[in-house]
Nucleic acid binder design. Sequence first.
DNA 1: TTTTTTAGTGTTAAATAAACACTTATTTTT
DNA 2: AAAAATAAGTGTTTATTTAACACTAAAAAA
Lengths: 235, 235
Amino acid sequence: MTRYSGQTRLLVAVDCIIFGFDGQDLKILLIQRGFEPEKNKWSLMGGFVQPDESPDEAATRVLKELTGLEGVYMEQIQAFGHPGRDPQERTISIAYFALIDIHKYEKQISDQYHAEWFTLNNIPPLIFDHTDMIKMARKKLRYKAAIHPILFELLPGKFTVPQLQNLYQGIYDTVLDKRNFSRKLMSTGLLVKQQEKDKAGSKKGAFYFKLDKKQYKKKFQAFLNFIPNPDNLLN
Amino acid sequence: MTRYSGQTRLLVAVDCIIFGFDGQDLKILLIQRGFEPEKNKWSLMGGFVQPDESPDEAATRVLKELTGLEGVYMEQIQAFGHPGRDPQERTISIAYFALIDIHKYEKQISDQYHAEWFTLNNIPPLIFDHTDMIKMARKKLRYKAAIHPILFELLPGKFTVPQLQNLYQGIYDTVLDKRNFSRKLMSTGLLVKQQEKDKAGSKKGAFYFKLDKKQYKKKFQAFLNFIPNPDNLLN
DNA sequence: TTTTTTAGTGTTAAATAAACACTTATTTTT
DNA sequence: AAAAATAAGTGTTTATTTAACACTAAAAAA
């Protein structure tokens, strides 16, 4: 079969915005680029889409390369394709965000990528349009998390309500009333209270909860409205 | 400057899902493909991203080519990139949806593309993964329109409340209470009542309204909740 | 003039959201 | 051993929003 004639072929890459939450702050995993151009500058983890893989598969592969993790929640954000965004060669990059349990993150033995976590208000200057990508990722995350119970993907198997509240507060850069937050949360029926307490976070200790996986799957598409007046807070 | 070595370059295309509303039904503009492969089959309007243009620009260009329209509301949906989605040659396609005022649609003189409007439950078999693209476009449109006053982009300068209600009902495949709908709509402050009536749609005639452009810009980001219980209706 | 058709409008009840402060458990300090 | 410090946990009231509901008005057609 003949190919389309007279058309230019372009490099196609994926870049991953990897979010993690340490119980206190929302963070992004960045790497120090090991090759030219812009060697040693900070950037998102990325890679080129290979002939035999879809962009989704490329993003999954790239995430695994850096973190060792599989089966992670990922979502395509959008394609970034300004000519000149990569000065070396025209490249279309498809951005993805991933939500990982930061505790499961395995520092790859080789430490080949020199990766580090950065809190959102501490992002260093990045190569190309990666800063824009992060901005879009945050926007999309806010948008989605205001409506769907997506942020549980960032938490470990067991977590406390105050931790979860911290997470929401961090993402929306706001302060929530803990009584209303807790009530709304419990009313979703997504959480199962554990006997055990987390004693690290406070003197009194806070009860652990686990996600009810079944309910989670069932209610994932429901409009949950965790965030009061989201229109003030989005963007 | 050297190029990235050892990587495969791919074709990158854009495809446009062009929505229009005739006052009764939501429709999509499709073309009969004029070249191989799949010549004469129905498809979305698309084109390859050129070396000097961004995907957004390519989509804008492609839309203009087909409809003659500029300054149209467009939004990127996502990139589709399964290897094999185009059997002729590996192509990554970035899908966009556009909302146009169907009355402004100018049949291009050449009629080079053999375009036709199809109602959503009447879409013919399409080439490649274009059916999936339309599915995603509808999903994204439903999602966005449940929250933002985006559907005005589909309407002409003046329109009636019953027309608008038809539009919402069509998109969400549901029936709305006209008292509640009308009240909610008016409370947005987005509409300006005209003296004139549309006499075409009914015996009594319905008053025309126009969009208050200033308010529209201001409130575009607000969470409006036009649709009761959106969680039942999305997807 | 009667019938038909669709536009237009108000009220009430139920559900949800928002605002608000004290008690409890535990550790640390004195 | 008692007191102080810290963060967790919990209930009520009011305001706002949403949902359900049915009749009148205008114009054309019969």
